[in-house]
Amino acid sequence: MIKKLSDIDVRWLYLIMVIFAIYPLLRPIGLPLPITDRARNSFAAIDALRPGDLVFFGIDYSPTQEAEMWPQTLAIGHHLAQRGVKMVMLNMIEGAYRYEERIRDFILSEYPNYQYGVNIIALPFTAGREAAFNSIVADLKGLYQVDLAGAALNTLPLWNEITGAGDFDMYVELADAPDWWLRPMSQVPGLKLWNGTVASGASTMAPLYQSGQMVGFIYGMAGAAEYEALVKKPGSAAAAMDTQSMGHALIILFVILGNIGYIVQRNAEAKAKGRK
């Protein structure tokens, strides 16, 4: 019986996991959520921005990562707007434009002090990823002629104030893992780099935060939930943290059960060999 623990049909695992995932979404448990020092420090980095500072706000994820990244986008969008910074949004991933549109419209509707073209601009999708970022560093004004809605950028007052990437104070990038934005953007002197990414991308980006190349770094649903708490705007990430905690508990349980079964089976096999 115990031996069977090492060879459970995965479909049973999937079924149990679904139940554990859905239950807290339907009946929230309200488990406590501690805030890490990393989230606090990342919050402090954006909080140190002054009204009128110029910030790039990169939205680089596709719908596949919406569950983790959209709550981050909303929470950070709130914070940037609360600080009153001037925002230039951009996207370099196919499909990310929709999230850029959504956060632009959200900020314009929630924060009356924001007026499109005056203190917020949304740039269109640009292909080429790292090459596109390199192009931003080399000649931002030459790269873009129209905004996300197709309007001429030279009719927007904020765009006419900007001379190039060197004018910006911070680059906030919400990306689905890779660091291809960081290499080009770190060439801009004095530009502070800040990143939100998915949980699976954390191991890649963490060393860059630890070394001081980035002033802020959050990841995954947990990062979004912490940030929601810090900006005092509880949202979908905080609600989903019960599910994540339950999921982690269940995975740990599966790992332990699998190992018990494995050890029992290994001992039985060793004994059988000994008898031979």
Binding site: V10, M17, T64, E66, A67, G95, R98, V255
Partner: peptide, 30 residues
């Protein structure tokens, strides 16, 4: 985009949830 592409793409990624569960169960043996 919002009601066809988005849910289909998100569903595809969400299957990782199941795969990670079984991967952890299978791979983390001492």
């Amino acid at each position: 985009y919002d009601f066809i592409y988005n849910p289909v793409a998100a569903t595809s990624y969400a299957t990782t949830f199941f795969f990670i569960t079984s991967a952890a169960y299978r791979a983390f043996r001492i």
